[in-house]
């Protein structure tokens, strides 16, 4: 348990409001190292329930790295070490008691490149509920699959070919399939790492609409390269630069009157 007294009592260079009223995830003084190299430096931020927050910043600034800390996907990289504290519902997720399996079931993830399993569409969505034992019968499983596909807006397009391979779908459809796969596990939070960067504008528009819908039920953290996208879908925006969290705040505010010079330079296209 992270004690209540010190969570809102933290030194940080970050400009803007890093705290939220109803925090789901609380990150404090997070440092991340790849071997000797430090990729994230002293980042503190809250992520609220049912908010959509976007991470922006130039490439290589550590957005993905930070995002992957939130569901401990960095555990899969041998050289990666995380310091500081990150808690979900006030429970430290790097605590020994926490099992990554349960953690990742609560915090779903969607990746930059759509990565459906080389299995049928149905199997892709049903995979999570199956391994976690979330359904006790075929009907329940069918129901979860159908519902998840509906929620991800894919149902109408694939309902007649659930048994065909997931890899046969178009890029945008594949990405929505991956989102369906993530929400089939009933997570609380969904992390998205540049989910639209491999997609064309029409597919991107569909995903953005979907994210807006999902934001009503889930906390969503989305890394994006497109400032328009961040502006369109997120309530809050965090700007990273060289591993540091420079500025956080209401999206509107960040994009209209950033306080920090670097943020302004990036927003106006001078850092890319």
């Amino acid at each position: 348990m992270v004690s209540n007294s010190n969570i809102n009592n933290v030194k940080t260079k970050t400009i803007g409001e890093i705290f939220s009223k109803d925090p789901k995830i609380i990150c404090r003084n997070v440092d991340v190292f790849y071997g000797e190299k430090q990729a994230i430096k002293d980042v503190s931020i809250d992520i609220a329930s049912r908010e959509i927050i976007s991470f922006i910043g130039p490439s290589g600034c550590g957005k993905s790295t930070f995002l992957r800390c939130l569901n401990r996907m960095n555990d899969t990289i041998d050289t990666c070490k995380v310091k500081g504290s990150i808690s979900l519902d006030k429970e430290d997720i790097y605590d020994e008691k926490i099992d990554v399996v349960t953690l990742r079931a609560k915090i779903g993830m969607v990746f930059q490149k759509p990565n459906p399993f080389p299995k049928s569409i149905y199997e892709n969505v049903a995979y999570g509920p199956k391994i976690h034992g979330l359904s006790s019968s075929k009907e329940e499983l069918d129901f979860i699959v159908e519902n998840s596909l509906k929620d991800s807006g894919l149902w109408e397009e694939v309902k007649d070919r659930l048994q065909s391979p997931g890899t046969g779908l178009s890029g945008g459809q594949q990405q929505r399939l991956c989102i369906a796969r993530a929400i089939a596990v009933s997570p609380e939070i969904i992390l998205m790492d540049e989910p639209c960067s491999a997609l064309d504008p029409i597919a991107t528009a569909k995903i953005e609409e979907l994210i807006n819908q999902l934001g009503k039920n889930y906390s969503i953290v989305i890394v994006t390269h497109s400032m328009q996208q961040a502006a369109r879908i997120s309530q809050r925006t965090a700007y990273f630069h060289l591993g540091e969290l420079i500025e956080v705040g209401e999206t509107k505010k960040i994009f209209t009157m950033p306080e920090d010079k670097q943020t302004e330079a990036y927003i106006s296209g001078r850092i890319g």
């Binding site: 609560k106 391994i131 519902n147 009933s186």
Partner: peptide
């Protein structure tokens, strides 16, 4: 969104089920 479903698990229910299966899977 599918508000009228009774069977779709909530996040809390889901995470309870997951937690109970973890030992066996580990």
């Amino acid at each position: 969104m599918n508000k009228n479903n009774s069977k779709m698990l909530t996040a809390d229910e889901a995470s309870k089920i997951v937690a109970s299966s973890v030992i066996r899977r580990r």
